[in-house]
Amino acid sequence: MQDSPAVVVLRYGHRPGRDDRMTTHVGLTARALGADRVVLPGNAGQSAETVRDITERFGGPFDVDLTDELDATIRDWAGAVVHLTMYGEAVQDVQENVRRAHREDGDPILVVVGGEKVPFEVYEHADWNVGVTNQPHSEVAGLAVFLDRLFEGRELEQEYEDADQRVIPQALGKRVEDVDDEA
């Protein structure tokens, strides 16, 4: 979120055709729940374009990058690395330490979200291997829970700049308006 050190989500791996929707949802979830940027594998161009289109229409700031150097991005990260895995320590047990590193120490956070099999080196390089539950679940769900715990719900109230469209909350139905129509 804009008022704290950067939070960047890295999608580790992408199988075209199989992971397109999931990779897109990792990017959309990162954007909607307070991350500043998502880094996607170089072969996830369609997912990157979808997330950029949503950011253009519904506001930002939010950046999308593509890279073929996922391991180097993790290895060279100048901050704390959180790897989300169902095999990690319980989020409720480490959340205070992660928040402290982020807020008090001013460390930018790289949140690694696996796609295909994540090599053991990622586990070794992470400052925290974090599980939101030790049961099989979606990596998108894990990311959402982790970001909400990191930001303590503040991300739910964030304002998006330069939006062309905005969702209007209501009890029933769907309503999306152009920002110019709201005045």
Rank of each mutant, 00 (worst) to 15 (best):
V8Q: 02
Q170N: 10
T133Y: 05
G59H: 09
H137I: 07
G88T: 11
P108N: 00
A126N: 06
V38D: 00
V118T: 09
V9Q: 00
R100N: 13
Y160E: 08
D164Y: 10
L70M: 15
A6V: 03
V112Y: 00
A183P: 10
S138K: 14
A126F: 06
Q170S: 09
E96Y: 12
V111I: 05
Q92I: 11
V113D: 03
T50Y: 04
N97F: 05
H137F: 04
V94K: 06
E69V: 08
E89W: 13
P41V: 05
V81A: 15
D93Y: 09
F62R: 03
D180G: 13
E182P: 01
F58V: 10
A78C: 15
E157G: 03
E49R: 11
G27N: 03
V91D: 12
D105T: 08
L150G: 08
P61L: 08
G115E: 07
I168Q: 03
Q46M: 09
E161Q: 13
F62H: 00
V113R: 02
Q170H: 14
V7N: 02
R103S: 05
G45D: 12
G59A: 06
G34M: 02
D178E: 06
V122Y: 03
E56D: 15
G131T: 08
D164Q: 14
D63P: 11
R149T: 10
R37K: 02
D20C: 14
T73W: 03
G88N: 10
S4W: 06
V145G: 00
P16A: 04
R154P: 12
A72D: 15
R166V: 14
D178W: 06
L40E: 01
G13M: 02
Q158S: 00
P5G: 08
